[in-house]
Design a protein around this nucleic acid. Structure first.
Lengths: 352, 352
DNA sequence: GATATATATGTAATCGATTGCAGTCAAAAT
DNA sequence: ATTTTGACTGCAATCGATTACATATATATC
């Protein structure tokens, strides 16, 4: 009745071999005689042995886990990415540790703790504003800790990153609107400090000037990636003397908030204004009107990032001196998904 | 230059004390003389010592982590719950390990592995269809492993669970529709094998009969909690000879799919049919029309579940023989959020 | 002044698996 | 017949922190 933990010791005794053999039979089966292996396996079955990962990790100096630093876990945008990450990690037998860095208890200096305290073998950063530069990783070593930015990128170019071509995304958006005849195109921005915001705005402006379209300061509306930012933007748009006939929102959530509030204010999309989003989250296809948007392959981004991180952990580093930046950065293509929230400019709009 | 890991040994030497004292100075400061403590702290600072969690966990026979078994991590429904969970765990210095059980690599028998392999101190189950009964937890022990169901519940009543009052939720929904004059009320179900589905249907039917409303077999439409289920349901509704004037959807996603497809089929909500959802996810307020729904406090559910699990891990178990089932189950109240997807029945609808 | 009590610290075993090194034995090579 | 080689296996150290127990010193008690 006295339940005791079964250890390699116990298995070894039952199998009539040494603990070394048990260990080898389990982790390097080819190094052990078939007959012996059978005996060990049988003993494992009899005793109900389960390996203790903590002990193994201590000895092997591994953690068997990867931590994902997520800004606001509650934001559904990240769920697909996490799912992609998890799918890759699970295959390798690694665990995914999720940390919400918006939680008050999280401090920037804490970022490397997971590595230095042996809680994780690598870091996946989903927030570009989390700057890891000049942050001592806790070891005296000058080696680069295994870090990969996911959907984002930091200031230190030596870290890996996986993201989409934000510049191209904005261009696709503007080009689409231009094709529909829109010439007055506005923008609802993400958070000011976010690099995504900067990259998308840059792409936006370069496309605008490429088509020689007008660009007014007041058509650039500040926000963050939230529904509420879209709601606020709707009021701004409304108050404009000369209103853009199309708005490019830096996230689908912004677009939904914008369209929804416009609806309440008595305007309608795309009749009064065309709206295009960014991300293509699940609901985009089912919103009314369905949302034209720039698709980011979020699951895939997660997968690629996890894969890249695993390679860094394994030491097949792309950060060797001779390797190019290109190898560290994976840039995935985006895709324009045309739906019903955008339409050709109407005479009525023009008249405005 | 030779970067070496700093251990308690090193700190002990620098501080001129034994490793035992270092350990105590760090984890039970009150057990050590102030002057000595200072010396140790100084040595820690000088050496840049970081504790090795793996070693500590091995010795203390803890894991310092909790695993959440999530069905489909990609589903944004779970993000708030996870956020709630993480907020509580972070405060206790525990890590959250997320596992997607829809991943092909996951097998039911694996559920307790995280416990028996010392990877986690407890289990948070977000899927009621994952049945843990009769699953040997790997230890010979007959003790109940620390498991708490979250938003769900299993068949074994000894496990803890935190969820909302689904029965009441359905009643609120029906009562609301009844008040608006609806008498023909349909239902779009969640997955058949899910207990939530059963509980909500039960509440639905009891309310229907309480108000002596008619109930037709064909008004009960099968589905799961997805957008697509709502889309399919729209076609079913359309094809009905006698159409309900109101539909209760077991999730907001179903409702969105339903409304959206109805829109494409030329019907409009709430003019042609009132729709009420369940969950109150963020977008519900901003959908067009905004969605009347039953709110589940998801963040809070996560918090409560995590708290309950921590108590079980600590051994302040509610599962002692004398304690009541009530203590194991936490049932949180739901709330009706009235928005624009429901409206009084019209004459036109009546006429149909 | 002698004994009891409390406080502070050190010694060394321990958690459970892994692995470098050495030893055994049989098959292969000379 | 002797040496070499290779395949297995075992011994024991190791990973890094915690803690039961022992020891030493200071304070309190009678």
């Amino acid at each position: 009745m006295t339940s005791k933990v079964v250890t390699v010791q116990d298995v070894a005794i039952v199998a009539g071999v040494s603990t070394a053999t048990v260990s080898r039979a389990l982790s390097k089966p080819e190094k052990v005689n078939t007959a012996t292996r059978e005996k060990v396996m049988a003993a494992v079955r009899v005793t109900g042995y389960r390996i203790n990962q903590t002990a193994r990790n201590l000895r092997k100096k591994e953690a068997g886990a990867v931590v994902a630093l997520v800004p606001n876990l509650g934001n559904p945008f990240f769920s697909s990415i996490l799912s992609g990450i998890e799918s890759v990690l699970a295959k390798e037998g690694l665990s995914l540790l999720v940390v919400d860095i918006l939680q008050t208890s999280f401090r920037r200096e804490q970022a490397y703790d997971y590595l230095s305290m042996n809680q994780a073998d690598g870091l996946l950063v989903l927030d570009g504003t989390l700057d890891l530069t000049n942050l001592n990783d806790g070891s005296v070593s000058s080696e680069l800790p295994p870090v990969v930015y996911c959907c984002e990128w930091g200031t230190d170019p030596r870290f890996g990153s996986v993201r989409v071509d934000n510049h191209q995304g904005s261009q696709l958006a503007v080009s689409h609107l231009y094709t529909l005849g829109h010439e007055a195109i506005g923008l609802v921005r993400g958070p000011a400090e976010n690099r995504l915001t900067a990259a998308r705005q840059e792409g936006f402006e370069s496309a605008i000037s490429e088509y020689a379209l007008p660009l007014r300061e007041e058509w650039l509306i500040d926000g963050d990636f939230s529904l509420d930012a879209g709601v606020q933007a709707a009021h701004r748009w409304c108050a404009l003397d000369e209103r853009p006939t199309a708005m490019f929102c830096m996230s689908d959530e912004i677009a939904f908030g914008f369209i929804s509030e416009l609806d309440r204010l008595g305007f309608s999309v795309p009749t009064d204004v065309s709206v295009i989003g960014f991300d293509d989250i699940a609901i985009a296809e089912r919103f009314i009107p369905s949302l034209t948007t720039i698709r980011q392959p979020r699951f895939r981004i997660g997968q690629e990032a996890a894969g890249k991180l695993l390679r860094r952990i394994a030491g097949e580093v792309e950060n060797r001196a001779e390797s190019e930046d290109a190898a560290r950065r994976t840039v995935l293509p985006v895709e324009l998904i045309e739906r019903r929230s955008t339409a050709p400019v109407s005479e009525k709009q023009r008249a405005l």
